[in-house]
Nucleic acid binder design. Structure first.
Lengths: 355, 355
DNA sequence: AAACGAATTGAGACCGGTCTCACTCTACGA
DNA sequence: TCGTAGAGTGAGACCGGTCTCAATTCGTTT
């Protein structure tokens, strides 16, 4: 504390070598624990290192070995509980395997994502974990496959790109949720997602996220099977997070108001719940609500929210596992892991009895 | 896609230089945009770089310049919304200033924290953002100040260490919350935190987190001022996150049950709310509940939870700003920024009328 | 036209590790 | 007793940038 020590040059292998009176090569061997060194010398070197406060420079090591023991992860927004959990899952697997994580937020924007990926590549990460902002346009991801570095996508796939991918069984989950509402007697069900989309959704439109696309597919297909015409007009995209409230208001105030809402993620569910509360419409009596993701608060509301839970932690973890395997040299053809979702029934569904 | 390009050696400045028929030094100047280069040559080099698909190696650059343009951040757990928000705040400031972030979770454990810090230092981050697992023991942080790298603490201070720190006005916030309950007529108020502590809390004990310590201080002091004896026996620490329920049960089932709870963070509040729900005790009629942090769900429950909101995003952002200023060479004496909390009143407080 | 200064360029050291290769020294088998 | 395998060590190249310094080119000034 008395001498801040700023500006003091870092201690290097050469310094240690000099102190231990051996060559740089030998010191490096003793410290790096590779090659052959006599016990006596190893001791001497390690003592010297200890004394001088030697701290290895991981960058220099990366320069010569080519391995950085670092993974990059690009998420939409770390504040989104989904990404926070997935990141944690990935981080746990990573540190267990001796890797650490460089984190970037893309805000689901192509430009920010491209920049983030560029930085990660420049930092020579050993591999990249990405929840791609666009499932349609692989431009941002091209540089990483061109760099030869392994890439694993999670939460969303990019059909044009043949790379390892970890996703959830969204279509099945959506069918299940939709069926649940249908069975309760609902016919006018709104599906809400914040995903960006040009204009109103029409059946067959391609969406920027395969996971939302699958949910929409499952939703509209199940509706169609139940004989509900024009299922696509119940799909509401582009919901800005702070705009869900007006959207819900519009949905409920229309000529043929929806009697149930499927929220595509927990943030939308939260906004929808809040909207219903503010508008004075009672859940589930006047409006049924179901959502994807078992956010912690969903059991706290009155009523609790019935949700399709995703193994979010595991999505991140599995993605990291896959990536680390690739880094280890696994050359098998790319795989797509599809993880199951499961239903958690609470009290937010009731028959659509209008008061 | 037809040629995977794996194993292809990275394109370097030398390659570009050769292609552009200039020296390595000149090519580097043209690419790195430093030094003087004629327009003609610059063009030629940049075209060559483009053609070859040159991507700078940030590590090599760091090796010679000594700057990594990377900040390290060590949080308790990125899944904790508090840390997620603070991290986002820091990340935003960081990228705006041209830095990126290496993220580590300490799980509030000394060993994991030490390791994380070690890795970050090895990676030669330009500076470190840490929410220290222990405010008492500066051991883990010593290496970073010894390395001469700037360090900024957030959420908690470490009194023994004179470094920049960003915290919230926790004592004031706690007083305010306590007074609110007192004014409603409560006298037996439980304060619950998950923070680790040896044995039961006694007035004057030092806590591992200054932020919790300040809250406890504010709490007990306010209680004492109101003439409540033995305020310290209402302080419950060591609450394992999944153990809050039994704790609440014990608190409510004792001879002199608490009539109100102050949750030290939103996760505890969540658990407490859930516990009350499961135990069938009604909030606020049978139990008042207030908490720190304005988690998004707190306005969704019935009733909403009255909370002391912290500017979490700003805590992270300000910490990053401070850090970047230090990295820029600011040698002013260390500062401690104290950010204000503000009360958000909802409906979770009522007089302690036992039914 | 000679001299001078600024702009441009090239050669090569350097950052801090790893790793190859050659050399020395010892122990063991033929 | 000699040859040789193998352990232990040192010298120096290398990774891919930056940067210093000297050399060259050019335009001006007098």
């Amino acid at each position: 504390m008395s001498e801040p020590g700023n500006g003091r040059r870092e201690v290097t292998v050469s310094d240690v070598a000099a102190a231990a009176k051996v060559s740089k090569a030998t010191a490096a061997r003793a410290l790096g624990d590779y090659g052959a060194v006599s016990d006596a010398v190893r001791d001497r070197v390690q003592r010297a290192a200890e004394e001088l406060g030697y701290r290895p420079n991981a960058l220099a090591r990366t320069m010569s070995t080519g391995r950085s023991h670092t993974l990059g992860i690009v998420v939409g927004d770390i504040e989104n509980p989904f990404f926070a959990q997935a990141t944690r899952g990935a981080a746990d697997v990573a540190v267990a395997a001796g890797f650490d994580l460089i984190l970037s937020n893309s805000d689901e924007e192509a430009a920010a994502e491209a920049k983030a990926i560029g930085v990660q590549l420049a930092k020579r990460v050993d591999g990249l974990l990405v929840a791609p902002a666009s499932s349609i346009d692989p431009t941002n991801l091209r540089p990483v496959v061109e760099s030869g570095r392994p890439l694993v996508l999670f939460d969303r796939a990019v059909p044009e790109l043949e790379v390892d991918t970890v996703i959830a069984a969204n279509r099945t989950g959506a069918r299940r949720l939709t069926r649940l509402l249908l069975d309760a007697g609902h016919r006018r069900i709104a599906f809400i997602s914040t995903i960006a989309h040009d204009g109103d959704y029409r059946l067959g439109d391609t969406l920027a996220s395969t996971s939302v696309a699958e949910r929409v597919d499952g939703f509209t297909a199940t509706l169609a099977e139940a004989g509900v015409p024009n299922a696509d007009r119940y799909v509401h995209l582009n919901a800005r997070r702070d705009g869900v409230e007006v959207l819900v208001q519009r949905i409920l105030g229309s000529a043929e108001p929806a009697t149930a809402i499927i929220a595509s993620d927990s943030l939308v569910a939260l906004a929808a719940f809040r909207a219903a509360r503010r508008l004075g419409v009672s859940i589930p009596d006047e409006l049924s609500l179901v959502a994807f993701d078992d956010a912690d608060w969903t059991e706290l509301t009155t009523p609790g929210v019935t949700v399709m839970a995703q193994p979010i932690h595991e999505i991140g973890a599995e993605a990291a596992r896959l990536l680390i395997r690739r880094i280890g040299g696994d050359g098998a053809p790319p795989v797509t892991k599809v993880l199951d979702q499961h239903l958690v029934e609470r009290g937010s569904i009731a028959p659509p009895g209008r008061p």
